[in-house]
Each structure stands twice: as C-alpha cells, then as structure tokens.
Amino acid sequence: MVNKSIDVVTVGHALVDIRIVVNEFPTIDLESKVLNQSWGSGGSAVNVAIGVRRLGMKSSLIARVGFDSFGRIIVDELLREGVDISGLRIGFTQTGFTIVAINNRGEIMMYGYKGAAEELVPDDISEYAISRARWMHIASLRLDTTIRAIELARKHGLTISWDPGRVLASQGLSNLKDIVANVDYVMLNEKEARLMTGIDDYREAVK
C-alpha cells in the first residue's frame, strides 16, 4: 500500500507573476509611472500548493515550466516553501508569465502568456505523485489533461476539487458536465458561475 505522505497535490499552471502598481492605467501611446513592482511564482496550482504548505500541511505540484530563468524562479520558490516537485515537468517552451497591473482604485488589468504551462499533456501527469496524496486540486488546466488527472485521482481514492478559471468556465456547462460529474467540489467565483451556466444569479447557477 502506498504511503499517503502528501495532503494535497495540485495540478495546473505554474507561471511567473510580474506585479506592478500604478495610479492610472495608461491609454494608447502614453506611459504610466510604476509606483511599486514585484516578481514571483504564480499560477493557481502553484499558489494553492504554497498556501497548503503555509497552513502547515504537505503539498505536491504537477505542472510544466520551461528550461529558463522564469522556470528557475518558480522552482527556487517551490523548494524554499517546501513543496514536493517530483511531478514537475521541464521543457524547452518558455515558462509562462502574467503581467498584473493594479491601479489606485484596486482595479486590475492582466496580460497572460501561458507558454509551457499549457503544454502539460495527459502523459505528463505523474501517477506516483497522485498515489501519495489524499486530496487533488485541479486549477485552470486544459480539458484532456484534467480528465486524465481525474481518472488517476479516482483510481487512488483522492478527494477532488476543481477550479476551472474563466477560460474553461466560458466553454459552458454542456462541454464541462463530465468533469463536474466526476469531481467532489467545483470552485467558482460569481463571474465563472455565470460564464459556465449563463445564469446571472449565482445561487441559481449553483443549482
């Protein structure tokens, strides 16, 4: 019997977040002064894996990064946080990144390049990493790889939570019903619930 030594294995995007703070978003051909900036690992799967560790539990990550400086930023931070990276895959496509701009009203603009993160294919999913975990959280992951992760999680008796994100949610419930039916928890914000169901009232969308 496999030792269940990992509390949560996360599957999804590993990106670098480039965060900037400005007074106002510039219009075309204008520049806005950056008041503050920071860099660091991001992507939903990475964020959850690190959050689990900071709550005192053990986590593992299944994702893909590139063989580049951004990939190294992600690997270094995961190691510092104590996240198991035995399921991390490294390729030659550039590591994905997101530029996040925040203005003085707390509004956000984002520019995203998924890069290597979106190249996590079904065959990349580590059954070993899954077999050691009790819970799987899938975040913003392409459909074919999501389905494979669910199959392996069910095989090894994991509880499964799924956060499709805005892009997948916009595909609609009819295209996602097989996933919804095979996970234990669907995690949506109000906008994602509306995108997935076409219903404005989130309480009705949940039904």
Rank of each mutant, 00 (worst) to 15 (best):
M1T: 14
S5Q: 05
I6T: 09
V11H: 00
H13K: 09
A14G: 11
L15Q: 05
D17P: 08
V21C: 01
N23F: 04
I28W: 01
D29S: 14
D29F: 02
E31L: 11
K33I: 13
N36Q: 13
G43C: 10
S44G: 15
A45V: 04
I50M: 15
I50G: 02
G51L: 11
V52C: 06
L55P: 05
G56W: 00
A63F: 03
R64D: 00
G66D: 02
F67L: 11
G71F: 01
G71V: 11
R72G: 07
I73S: 13
I73P: 02
I74W: 07
I74L: 07
E77R: 12
E77H: 14
L78S: 08
G82R: 10
V83S: 02
G87Y: 02
G87A: 10
R89C: 09
T95H: 01
I99M: 07
N104Q: 11
I108L: 12
M110Y: 00
M110H: 01
Y113Q: 04
Y113N: 08
A117R: 04
P122S: 11
D124H: 14
Y128T: 06
S131L: 03
W135F: 15
L141K: 05
L141V: 07
L143G: 00
D144S: 15
T145C: 09
T146P: 07
R148M: 13
A149T: 08
K155T: 11
H156R: 03
G157H: 03
P164E: 10
P164I: 12
P164W: 04
R166P: 09
V167S: 09
A169L: 11
Q171T: 14
L173W: 07
L176I: 10
V180M: 06
A181V: 01
V183Q: 00
V186A: 10
E192P: 06
A193M: 10
M196P: 07
G198N: 13
G198V: 13
G198Q: 12
I199L: 12
R203G: 06
